[in-house]
Structures are given as C-alpha cells and as structure tokens.
Design a protein around this nucleic acid. Structure first.
Length: 261
DNA sequence: AGTACCACCTGACGGC
DNA sequence: TGCCGTCAGGTGGTAC
C-alpha cells in the first residue's frame, strides 16, 4: 500500500509508538533491504540511540535520531511496520527488527523485499541525493505548476515521476485523474493554467481525504475510484464500466465515460 | 526529455 | 494437487 497517504499513516503509527525509547539492538534478518549501509554499520549507528521525530517526504519516512544519522524507511509495494511487545514470534517477513530497551520491538516487515532502508544525514540532503521533487502533500500551487511546466509527457507518467513531485503512486494517481476527469494519457502540455491549478487542488484534496480515512480505501467517499479498482466495476459517478488499460507499464483504471482523452 | 522493456522479489489467484 | 501465467499500490538501468 505504501504511497504518500499510506506512509503518512505509518508515520503516525511510528510517532505513537517508537519514539524516545533507547534502541537496544538492531537485528537485520535480511540485508537485501539495506541500501548503502551494512547490517553492522546500521546497528552501530543506532544502538544506544533513540528515535526522536519523523518527517515524511514522498513515500519515504525519515526518522531523526539523537545521533548523527537519520534512518530512512521506504516501503516498496508491501512494506509495513509492526510494534509489539517482545516475546512470542515477530511477524512473518520481518526484515529488520528494532528492539528497544523497554522490551518492545518495532518490526520492519516487507514480504516482497522491494523496500529500502538506509542512513542519511538529513531530509534536505536526502531529497537532493535522491533527486526527489517537492512532496505532493505540501507542494504549493505555484511550485506545482512550475514543476509541470514544459513537460511533454503524459499526465499519469509525470505525476508518478518522483523527481517531479514525490508521493503519488499508481493508485492515488489514478484517483486524482478520476477526480479531475482527465484521461491518464493526456499530455501535460495540453493543460491550461487553470486546469493545472485545479489538478493541484485535487491532489491536495485526495491526500487529505485519504488521511481522514487512514488511507483505507474501503472507507473512502462513495465518489472515489479507489474502492472500485477493477475492470467491470461500476463507475461510482456515472455507472459506466470501469476499464483497465496500461499506461506507463502499469495497470490503470479509468472510467471511459468520465475520463475522455 | 520521454518511453519501452527488463529486472529485482514474493505471494495470491484463476485456469487447466 | 500441481503447474503456469498473470497480477500486485515500489524503483532503477538500458537503449532508442
């Protein structure tokens, strides 16, 4: 699930559970998810430290420690967090386990192992290293239109490009375009200034609504596409059959009636 | 700059 | 039951 709203929910979760506890141990169960850091270095950097605060940029959760480093958590397609009391078994597919001195565990769970964990010196440095665009949830209208300026590609491809704006993935991009009544293959440069402003407003609204429902699509408003992702489902707005097409090599769901090219 | 294609990894599901 | 293809919300590299 981990697109921007999902990661925002994980941030809330971590903030509510794992801050300010001394890290007693870092148990790397599968170092495939480590990027640019060894299990040894990760443990050395974190042991005896505490997580103090978090900041989300796009789909990345950055965790500040009381030491030199920030921990970066990225969740790929299947990543998750699980905080639990020590004892019993840790969740299946736990790749890294942060054990706190008070006996609780924070498990980084990632069945498909497409997530990444790394260390960074701070949010700005991280965004620069990764060439991330502004966060989709915080980007202002002017900056948004500036980022879209001169783009020659398709809307969906551009919105999913993390170096343009960071945070939107396959599901939420489809949702935004459905709400905007725009076909995903629309050329960015064919949009008017006004349409771009509208798109910006819709991005903000979709993210806010998702957050209000803990990013659980089942609870989204009836007029949302996300709970109806699937070919042959009814468009929640006009009743037409939702169609699955391929854009950017990704499964894309549209209402062929609401979203004309 | 943009796109197509391939790769990474694992699990779930449907068809035969 | 077993095998096979397809799909799944992530990114990254290469070639054109």
């Amino acid at each position: 699930m981990p697109e921007l709203p999902d990661v925002a929910v994980l941030k809330r979760y971590l903030d509510a559970t794992a801050l300010h506890n001394e890290i007693a141990d870092v148990d790397v169960r599968d170092d495939y998810v480590l990027k640019g850091v060894s299990a040894r270095k990760l443990a050395d950097a974190l042991k005896g430290r505490r997580f103090e605060s978090t900041l989300r940029h796009g789909k990345n959760l950055l965790v500040e420690t009381d030491g030199e480093n920030w921990l970066r958590l990225h969740f790929g397609m299947t990543g998750n967090l699980n905080y639990h009391k020590k004892g019993g078994s840790d969740p299946e597919h736990t790749r890294v386990l942060f054990a706190f001195a008070d006996g609780y565990h924070l498990a980084y769970v990632c069945p498909r192992k497409l997530g990444r964990i790394s260390l960074t010196s701070g949010p700005e440095e991280f965004a620069r290293e990764q060439n991330l665009g502004p966060d989709a949830g915080r980007v202002g209208q002017d900056e948004f239109t500036r980022m879209m300026d001169g783009r020659r590609g398709m809307l969906k491809t551009t919105l999913m490009n993390q170096s343009v704006i960071a945070g939107l993935g396959n599901v939420y991009t489809d949702e935004v375009l459905f709400q905007a009544r725009l076909h995903p293959e629309t050329k960015v440069k064919s949009l008017s200034r006004e349409q771009l402003r509208g798109l910006h407003r819709i991005i903000q609204r979709v993210i806010r609504v998702a957050l209000n429902h803990d990013a659980d699509a089942r609870d989204f408003p009836r007029t949302y596409l996300a709970p109806h992702r699937g070919a042959g489902e009814d468009c929640p707005r006009c009743g037409a059959d939702i169609r699955r097409i391929e854009v950017n090599q990704r499964g894309t769901y549209i209402c062929p009636r609401c979203q004309q090219r």
